[in-house]
């Protein structure tokens, strides 16, 4: 009985429900906080002069990605061309 109905109304998928999306993002936040705190609890031995201080990798990862995206965004101003840029026949 349910078969024909499911063909008309598409079934709701996992991330159609905004609550599931928030759940994923929420758990990412909590894991990040946990990992940051673990730096103060677990002993992480320094491999060089920088990475000894607490939160180095967390800070580095976050900053690196933000920098990456911001620079890439600026690169677009110089590098971006139309999709058929190379296709234009002489």
């Amino acid at each position: 009985m349910n078969e024909p109905e499911s063909e008309i109304v598409e079934k709701q998928h996992l991330f159609d429900n905004p609550r599931n999306v928030s759940l994923v993002i929420g758990s990412l936040y909590s894991v990040c906080i946990l990992l940051f705190l673990l730096d103060f609890i677990l002993h992480r031995h320094a491999t060089n002069e920088w990475d000894g201080f607490a939160g180095f990798y967390a800070l580095f990862g976050f900053t690196a990605c933000v920098t990456l995206v911001l620079i890439a965004k600026q690169m677009r101003r110089i590098l971006k061309r139309k999709e058929n840029y190379y296709d234009v026949a002489d």
Binding site: L28, Y29, L35, Y57, F60, G61, F62, A64, C65
Partner: peptide
């Protein structure tokens, strides 16, 4: 894990 998950956070 810190490096990667904070990248995801970014």
């Amino acid at each position: 894990l810190q490096l990667l998950l904070f990248s995801a956070l970014a």
